[in-house]
Design a protein around this nucleic acid. Structure first.
Lengths: 211, 211, 211, 211
DNA sequence: CATGAATGAGACTTCATTCAT
DNA sequence: TATGAATGAAGTCTCATTCAT
């Protein structure tokens, strides 16, 4: 009965990556609930059943995407902070550029949009994402601010609040990029790097201990 | 047999308001797609059919919520800016407090979360929301920054980027409040007013023309 | 878009009965797992969605069938035993005839087949059916045997074992009727009433205290 | 690299047996439709593909199980009846004990449960099982009853009905063992041998020609 | 002979919307 | 106006069977 014309390809090695890539794209595009597992499969070039061979549920697929696309990235950032030699202002500037290049400007950032929108409907994902992404990211920026204070470069302000204020615009821009930025809408254009530079200049001026 | 103490006549007039309130709550809680029209109706104390008597589709209901809950608010902010007498730093501080009290800290802010998450699935809502909310909000902050520059209080920086940098943390916090803030998740607590004050202090220090 | 030609019938009162009847037929015919909820609906003349309006899941539908078709029947049998005036041998004969007419020879008996076959796959149904049907049926026959012994009509044998021996052929025949009896198979015909009469004669002869 | 101590050659010959054993267990446990072919394979220690190498479909696998586990058994019973020397009452008692030990109390009896439950969904199996199991089993008991009548030990009752009445409780108990008996359910315990002895005593008393 | 990756029909259940009353 | 019964498209996940290796 099966007239399937194309040869079934057997590629256990590369399948997970292809599925993860397709899933990322679609989750970002449609959101978690609105992404149909069949479409993930089709976009990865396999059948519905194959997807479930690798990931037992849509929720697990999502977690796998988070792990591969986000967790890793943050760990790398943390490494950079540990080994950086220059001033903390420069470190923050560099952190921000890298962040934008490797995260804000890639599909990965769209995941955050999805999580923000749908955690309340999928409580299990909430703690997972908090542990896997939010807490580590927080630590990354907090430890950087602490470094600045410890080295006498920054004023002694509440570390966590400053860290949040630093991250906020980056996340805001990433969200924007994956919502309105992806729609053909007039009047909402913005230049992310310009905004980020402007805001970092402002904040650094505010942070630095005056001569 | 009718034990309902509320006179029937009075009800009719308040129906739309009750429906809008219920819809706002639920859209914020669940998102647009995940909100079931039946639950909106039930929470407003009417039947499913009645909801459709007032709003011909879920999408129209959503637009009505936006119009009533957001557009108005921004207009009021614009009025305040026009009539404010003090320094622009004080104006921004006041703007921020009011914004948090009347928007960031109310369900209304949750709507933004919903829009960010689902615009791409409901393209018609994109332009509507951009025109109705984003552009006016932008104008509100841009004009305030311009005022500061015009009065010599602020340095002459790119107005629009500064405005975005000012709004970003507020929006970030509002989104957070309606996503992780509403989940029983550990490790992601933050004090919005402290963050906002910290960030505004930093930015104002960076904005002000040095003596 | 809906071209539905037939007028939607609104019959909240009679729907549950129609659904229960259709469900009984199909469960008996196909078994629990193999019965598709859509077919239950179709056979009751409604759409798939309507079924779920009345019963929230296939499992609940099944329980409702059991309650309506079995539990009631056993209760009526119990009443009869309580008010019967004649000899216990006659009571058993009557019980058996009624049982066959009102249960063994009706679709209701097929339910037992289904339960026997599928309890192990649906553990929740096991206790439900044990409490709702098996235990009461046991009580019905045990109390009758006890009556015979108490009145000196029967020898003092282990009550519960005798009760089981009495029920066994009835149940066996009912199962047979709904499995092979419903298939066009040669060589397995049997006349239930003849078997039951033969077996009851044998057992009563064995039970009775010899003159 | 191969740590498998079993020589490969030996395996090949025992494969079918291992598959049949695994299939029996699972069919009894889950039923025919609910048994997944992959699990049969896994329990037999081979891959899914290998199963299909030996049996072209689940249905053929099932038939093979019936042939090996049931047909043989009945043939042996028939032999015993032919060569038995004592009274027919003793023969029946012995038959019953052997039946319970070698069939009722083994997984094989569970097959009958499966067939009863699912014949209607797999019509081809109906005639197969009738020819292979039901008719021979019937003959086994009928011929025994005939022997008793021919030797003047039993009253001249309808042979086939008596045979059915004799088998019924055994089958009933076997079914029970593999359904409720396998579930952790309260209130449905019974002692099979006690029931069988009780019923056989009753029936033999009824069968025997009074002195 | 043996493997296990791949397929896709099919099952249960949800929910926006309609419409008879 | 108001109700809520009814519809049916759509979505997640399962599993018998096939086939490239």
């Amino acid at each position: 009965m099966s007239l399937d014309p194309r040869p079934r390809q057997r590629r256990k090695e590369t399948r997970p990556q292809e599925l993860l890539d397709a899933a990322l794209e679609l989750f970002v595009e449609k959101g978690f609930a609105a992404t149909r597992s069949e479409e993930v499969a089709r976009r990865a070039g396999v059948s519905k059943g194959t997807l479930y061979l690798y990931y037992p549920s849509k929720e697990e697929l999502f977690k796998a995407v988070v792990r591969q696309k986000l967790s890793q990235l943050i760990a790398e950032g943390q490494d950079m902070v540990g080994s950086f030699g220059g001033s903390t202002s420069d470190l923050l500037r560099q952190l921000m550029h890298i962040w934008w290049e490797r995260f804000g400007n890639t599909p990965a950032a769209g995941i955050h949009k999805v999580v923000i929108a749908e955690v309340r409907n999928f409580p299990e994902l909430a703690q997972f994402y908090a542990d896997e992404v939010i807490t580590p990211a927080d630590r990354l920026f907090s430890s950087t601010v602490e470094r600045g204070i410890a080295r006498g470069e920054f004023r002694a302000l509440p570390v966590h609040d400053v860290a949040t204020a630093l991250m906020a615009p980056m996340i805001f821009l990433a969200l924007h990029r994956h919502s309105f930025g992806a729609c053909p809408v007039h009047g909402v254009e913005m230049d992310p790097m310009a905004v980020l530079n402007t805001q970092l200049d402002l904040v650094l001026r505010g942070l630095e201990t005056r001569a």
